[in-house]
Design a protein around this nucleic acid. Structure first.
Lengths: 153, 153
DNA sequence: GATGACTTGATATTCAATTACAATCAGGGC
DNA sequence: GCCCTGATTGTAATTGAATATCAAGTCATC
C-alpha cells in the first residue's frame, strides 16, 4: 500500500535497485532505456500513460517513437515491475516486484492515486468464483474506483 | 450466465424487447439506431469492438462515423443494456438489464465467450476490501481470464 | 408553425497500440 | 582480434480506440 508522505526520491531509487537486482538474478537485461522508463513511471507516482512516458523520454533528445516505449513497458510488465491499469490505459510501478502477481487496485477518482492490494483473501475468493463458474483460472484484473481516505477529508 | 446451446435469434429478440420495455418505463428513447446497435452486440454473442459494430452498422448504407457508434454504446451502457470489457476494449450485452450493476466477468481465453457473474458475495467482498483500504466505494471492474468448461474438453 | 431539447450526421483530430523492416549492440566461439 | 547469432533499439507507416466540434434533423409542446 502506498503512503502519501514519504521521500519520493528514495522511493524511486529503491524501486530501481530492486529491479536491477531481480534482473541480475533472472539474467534479463535491465538496459538504460528500460531503467529510464521505470524511473519515469515511478517518478510520477500515479498512473502514467504510454504517451506521457514518450513525451518525458523525448526531452532533450530526438523524439522517440511509440514502439520504443511500448517495448520497454512490455518488458517491465513481463518482469512484474509495472502493472497496467486497464480502466485508465495507464501504468503504475509495482509495489512488490519480487513476487509475480495480478494487479488488484483501488483507484481514487479525485486524486488519481492508486493503491495496490496484495490480499491473499481477495485472490482466493476470485479463484473460487472462477471455479464455481466452471473456469480454469488463469489471471484476473480488479480495479475498484472510489474516494481515498486523504481526499474524503 | 450464458448457455452455449440455445436458440440465438430468440435470445436476441428477448434482449431487444426487454430493452424496449425498460426504456418505456424510464421514458428514455430506444431509437432505431440504438436498437440496431444493441441487436448487433447481441448478434455476435461475444465481446464486440466499437469498430466491428461500426462496420456492421455501415453495411448497405453510407458509412457511419465513430461518434454515431460510441454515442449509441454510451446510451446502452448508461441504461445497463451493455457492459464494456476493459481488458478487451470490447462490449457485451448484459444478461440482467433490469438491475443496474457492475460488470464482473469471466472471459474464456480460447473461445472468447464471456460469462457475467452476478454474485452478491463477490460484490460484498470487493466492497469490504475497499473499506479496509480506506476507500469510499464507487464502482469496480473484475475480469477473470481462464478456460471455460466447454473448451477444456 | 415556432421554440427548445434531444438525437444524429459529418469532419477532423487526438490518443493508444502494433506491424514491418533496418540498424545497432552484446556476448560466445573460433 | 573477428565473425556469427540473438536481443535490443531506431524509424516509418498504419491501424484501432475515442473524443471534440459544429451542423442538420427530429419531435413533442406551446
Amino acid at each position: 500500500m502506498l503512503k502519501h508522505k514519504h521521500d519520493h526520491s528514495v522511493c524511486i531509487e529503491t524501486a530501481l535497485e530492486a529491479a536491477q537486482k531481480i534482473c541480475e538474478k533472472r539474467e534479463t537485461r535491465f538496459t538504460p532505456l528500460r531503467r529510464r522508463v521505470l524511473e519515469l513511471v515511478w517518478r510520477k507516482h500515479q498512473p502514467i500513460t504510454a504517451y506521457e512516458v514518450l513525451d518525458l523520454l523525448s526531452e532533450g533528445r530526438k523524439r522517440v517513437a511509440p514502439p520504443t516505449v511500448y517495448r520497454a513497458l512490455d518488458f517491465l510488465i513481463e518482469e512484474g515491475f509495472v502493472h497496467r491499469i486497464e480502466s485508465l490505459n495507464a501504468f503504475v510501478g509495482c509495489s512488490d516486484p519480487e513476487h509475480k502477481h495480478q494487479g488488484h487496485f483501488m483507484i481514487c477518482t479525485k486524486c488519481s492515486n492508486v493503491t495496490e492490494m496484495n490480499e491473499a483473501s481477495l485472490h482466493s475468493v476470485i479463484e473460487r468464483a472462477a471455479k464455481e463458474n466452471g473456469y480454469t483460472y488463469e489471471n484476473s484484473i480488479l480495479e475498484i474506483a472510489g474516494i481515498c481516505a486523504n481526499c474524503r477529508n
